[in-house]
Design a protein around this nucleic acid. Structure first.
Lengths: 408, 408
DNA sequence: ATGTTATGTTCTTACCGAGAACAAAACAAC
DNA sequence: GTTGTTTTGTTCTCGGTAAGAACATAACAT
């Protein structure tokens, strides 16, 4: 069991014992070349916005048609890819379509909410199929429910499992969910050796990954994604991978003091951005006690009343949006993203107060950055962002030289 | 001419026009394998803490002794490496030492301060030799002085030039140095086609790179480095590379509002961390007007008086150090570095107030992070950090498949 | 029916690294 | 001084890969 740790930061375990050589520079033989090209081809098929043909794959990968033929033949024999004739589209010999093999590998993804869970399956090409969902009692026993569901649906096609969950997971093992009161929950006890290879990741980070892979942030070199629910958390995305940090607990941008709040935060620090952005901030604004996962309906009600012109609600939403913008501007000074996407309440705040968010962001930018402020956009993956992100990161296990080398 | 843009973020120029395949997954043939291994070998020689032997290189790179022999022979013929017998150290046939070739490629590095400049040369293995230095009139005409000095020392061994300079360089072209009053200086006009391949980078970022390559941050997966002079700026380092951002202007952490200042900053925003950390903050504390690169001596004087027990000076330094710690804690919540190194005034602040910095940092951390707070350490590269970083990033041009492929 | 176009298949070539075997050069033990 | 052990260098063979060219095939255009 390990958590989602994309990108080059995951070098600790494979670092030379004496001194470092960049992990990317592995040994390479001609057999490794073949696997390298198999990975490239499968990644291309997986990421293609529409089904890829063999001829297009050869052009895209800049390989000979003979090599493409060899790669496809081998992947078909390994039941990783299925090739069927493509309809002719003009002069010239018709090519073939490269499709997921019906017996090819799949990964499962689970999304754990405060009181419910969903299990889905992803195959090559990215098709996501919901398998089962249910409720749970807000305790870590939910992992047993997921394990049972996985067992009901598993077959030998199952290669890996990805799990999206709220809260950070320190050192891939210690889970914290403050609004459920989970503190230092040991994932090692809940995800034992009986599990298939499992990746557990923070839901905001996985939502960001989903936008980078299949959503509005696709193709963006440096981006950020923020999910706003009770509070705000997110991820820095570099070349499509979300950054994890040294102990796998990067992304808590909501716990930076970006908006001048004098209040103490539940996280243990002072003045966090999350005190001013999200549902908890709206609740506090109306004298309610935030916490423990309650209040989402109230937050939606405040937004609805603000849209209808209620003055107090409008002011509350104004302040939420302005605080959001201010924090985004500060982060843009530091990390220089090309685009910032939002999900959850963030989509609503953009809908209601795009101008205010952008103006507040710009005011917080250093003057010379204002010519090219980052785009602030609503995520397009939607509510299944964490599930989609968990599915993609689980399926990443298949698209590796190690996994393919063992399979071919 | 381009600026230092390490890491995976530099994918914009080579991204597929249709949709993305990770840039790292390039085509690979057996000839590419050879170049790949040449790069690995030269990188190992460059980075080794002590001269590397052929036998040790074979073990380190996990290649056969026959392959190591072939690689070394080819690099020697290309005058990229020089092999000499090593002294026998025990039983067994003596091996050889792999040294920089006396006619091998070099890179030049320039460090531009407010009123002076330094030019140095780096060769394989990292030896840095100062060539020349001088003063300048605080205008962009300094680039012409550097160009002339480069021309005086250049030979056909010169492969690339790296330049370290204060201020961000937007889109690799537009340079801003607020304390010199340089605004949107067009590097395209100053670094024309006559220059060798040139990389220009921000000095704080290059100082961080120096610590990651040759200093206290070597081998650290996720780290941050901050340089404190008049204000504070830094860089996020992932797997030894400093992150540049979408427009090459990441790293302005000093322009985030982390410490609650009500003041407006010269950068155009409000409440920046730099208002509370660095020489400018010390000057303001004593009623002086900061700006335009003046006051370094005053800052040192304040530190000296604080060390001697002067109450007002001590309080000023306390506040500077506490603000530093608070900001570092906030950034640790967001980016989860394993270590944070400091240079410039930061080294002095650590010496005088390590306990206060660490306590302030811990107070700003989310509670569950306090068990593993990031290490806060003084950089070890010293004042030549920017020069060393510029040298390394320039020499990186040599250690690429493209450069070697053209040379072999 | 013929020509054009695009793709698939076959064949040859050149390149690489691995692994084994042997050679060489050191020091250890006697 | 001789023999043995250890470590590394050199040589050789093998098997793998992709590229590129040439030819075959299958579509549509004229």
């Amino acid at each position: 069991m390990r958590t989602a740790r994309n990108g080059a930061a995951d070098g600790g375990a494979i670092r030379s014992e004496r001194w470092d050589i960049l992990p990317a520079m592995a040994t390479m033989t001609s057999a490794d070349i073949r696997v390298h090209n198999q990975v490239r081809l499968l990644r291309a098929v997986h990421d293609a916005p529409e089904p890829l043909t063999r001829a297009a794959a050869a052009r895209l990968l800049a390989i000979g048609r003979n090599t493409a033929g060899a790669l496809v033949g081998e992947l078909e024999r390994a039941r990783l890819l299925h090739e069927v004739p493509a309809a002719a589209t003009g002069r010239g010999r018709p090519t073939t379509l490269l499709l997921p093999h019906p017996e090819g590998p799949v990964a499962f993804a689970a999304d754990i909410r405060e009181d419910s869970w969903t299990l889905a399956r992803i195959a090559l090409g990215g098709e996501l199929t919901e398998l089962e969902s249910g409720e749970h009692d807000r305790t870590p026993a939910v992992f047993e429910l997921i394990e049972e569901a996985v067992a009901r649906h598993a077959s030998d096609r199952l290669a890996a499992v990805g799990i999206a969950i709220a809260g950070p997971i320190r050192d891939e093992r210690w889970l914290h969910i403050s609004h459920l009161g989970w503190d230092e929950v040991d994932l090692g006890e809940h995800l034992g050796e009986a599990w298939p290879p499992t990746v557990v990741g923070n839901d905001a980070r996985l939502a960001g990954l989903a936008e980078a892979r299949r959503g509005v942030l696709r193709g963006t070199g440096t981006a950020m994604h923020f999910h706003i629910d009770f509070d705000i958390g997110g991820t820095l995305l570099l070349a499509g991978d979300s950054q994890t940090g040294a102990h796998n607990i990067a992304g808590e941008f909501g716990h930076m003091p970006l908006t001048g709040s004098p209040l103490r935060c539940m996280c243990g620090s002072l003045g966090c951005w999350s005190l001013d952005v999200g549902t908890n901030a709206l609740m506090r604004r109306f004298g309610k006690e935030p916490g423990y996962g309650a209040g989402r309906a109230f937050g939606r009600e405040v937004l609805r009343r603000a849209a209808e012109g209620d003055a107090a609600a409008a002011e509350a939403v104004d302040d939420n949006a302005a605080a959001l913008g201010r924090g985004l501007g500060a982060l843009a000074n530091a990390l220089d993203p090309e685009a910032i996407s939002l999900s959850g309440l963030g989509v609503e705040l953009i809908r209601l107060r795009r101008g205010l968010i952008e103006a507040s962001c710009e005011a917080a930018l250093m003057a010379f950055r204002r010519a090219e402020a980052p785009r602030i956009v609503a995520g397009t993956v939607g509510g299944i962002g964490p599930l989609r992100g968990a599915a993609e990161v689980a399926f990443d296990e298949v698209l590796t030289p190690e996994w393919l080398g063992a399979r071919l």
